[in-house]
Design a protein around this nucleic acid. Structure first.
Lengths: 166, 166
DNA sequence: CTCGGTGCAAAGCTTTTGCATCCGC
DNA sequence: GCGGATGCAAAAGCTTTGCACCGAG
C-alpha cells in the first residue's frame, strides 16, 4: 500500500519544511503523513481520523486539522472543496498535476489532465495582473457508467459515515 | 439598482419553473429573487438575509436557503464554494458565462472569460464518457493592486460580519 | 379547506479554540 | 526545563430539520 521509496522522499521534504519554519518534528505529524501516503484517492478529515483510530493510533481531530494545514502549506497535500461543505484532501507529491470530474449522481471522482489549462492560466494571470499560485477546475456531470445509479446517496450527505471499531 | 426589464424576464422564468414543478408562488420567493437581482457581485446567505431584514422584510434563513436551492436548480443563480466553508451565490441570468480569479490576500473576486475552456470541457466529456453539466474554475493568486494589502483579513473568517440594524 | 411553505428554534456537522498536559529540543 | 504541540471537550459557524401556524391554490 505504502510506496516506501516515495514516502522517504516525502518525509525529507516535510522535515525540511518543519526545520525551515522552526516547527517540531512530532511523531503525530509523521504518522499522519504516512497514513495519507498509504491511502489512495481523496479523503476527508473524518475518514483519516477514523483510519488512524482503527489502527489504535492515538490522535485528536485537532492535530489532524493542524497537520493537514502544514502539509497543504508545503504542497505535499492538496485540499479541495468539491461543492459540499466538507474539505477533501489528496496526496500530491510525485503524482501528475490533474483536475477533477465529479459525478453528481454517484459522487465518483475522476481525474484528467489538459495542458491547455496551463496556457489559459498564464494568459489570464498576465491579462488581469495577477500572480496565480494555483487553481481548481472541476467538471460536474453524470457518468455514463452503468454502475452509477447503484451508488446514489440521499440528498443530505451530512451524517457521519464512518465509525470507530470496538 | 434593479434592472426592471431584466427582472421581469427573470421572474417569468422562475414562474415557469415553479409551475412545472408544481410549487407555490409565494411572495417570499419573489422577494428573495428581487433582492438577489438588485445586488451586484457575489454574496452569501447571511448577507442576503441581513439585507432583507434591514429592509424590514420578514423572512427566515430557512426560507432563504430553500429559495436559493430552487433558484440554483432553475439556473437563475449560481452557487460557489471558493475554498472556504461558506457558500457564495451570484445571479446568473443575462450575464456572460465567466470564471473566477480570487486574491488570497484581500479576497477580492474578479471575473474572466476564456472560450478555450469550453473546448476543454467538451473534449474531456467525450474522452471520459461524461455528460458534463457545468464546471467551476477558480484561479487563486495575488493581485498586484496596491490597495490589496489594506484589505487583509485575519486567518479565521468565521465570524458574523453583518448586523441587523435597530 | 388542504397541505405546501414559512418562521423560529433546535439540532447536526465540520472546523476552531481554550486549557491542562506532554514531550521535542 | 521551556515553550510549542497534543488531546479533549467545548464553542463557533454554516446549514438542515421539526413543528406549529399561515396562506396559496
Amino acid at each position: 500500500m505504502l510506496d516506501n521509496k516515495l514516502f522517504e522522499e516525502v518525509k525529507k521534504i516535510f522535515v525540511a519544511y518543519l526545520e525551515k519554519k522552526e516547527l517540531r518534528k512530532t511523531p503525530e505529524r509523521f504518522a499522519i503523513l504516512e497514513e495519507i501516503y498509504s491511502r489512495k484517492d481523496h479523503f476527508d478529515v473524518e475518514e483519516l481520523y477514523i483510519s488512524m483510530k482503527n489502527k489504535n493510533y492515538r490522535v485528536s481531530r485537532a492535530t489532524v486539522y493542524n497537520t493537514l494545514d502544514l502539509l497543504v502549506d508545503c504542497d505535499l497535500v492538496t485540499k479541495h472543496q468539491f461543492g459540499k461543505n466538507l474539505a477533501q484532501y489528496e496526496k500530491s507529491y510525485g503524482f501528475k498535476q490533474h483536475d477533477h470530474l465529479l459525478c453528481v449522481e454517484c459522487h465518483k471522482v475522476l481525474e484528467f489532465c489538459d495542458p491547455r489549462l496551463q496556457q489559459i492560466q498564464d494568459m489570464v494571470g498576465e491579462l488581469m495582473k495577477f500572480d496565480i499560485l494555483h487553481h481548481s477546475l472541476v467538471f460536474y456531470g453524470q457518468c455514463t457508467n452503468p454502475t452509477c445509479d447503484g451508488k446514489k446517496e440521499p440528498k443530505s450527505t451530512q451524517k457521519r459515515k464512518y465509525e470507530i471499531e470496538d
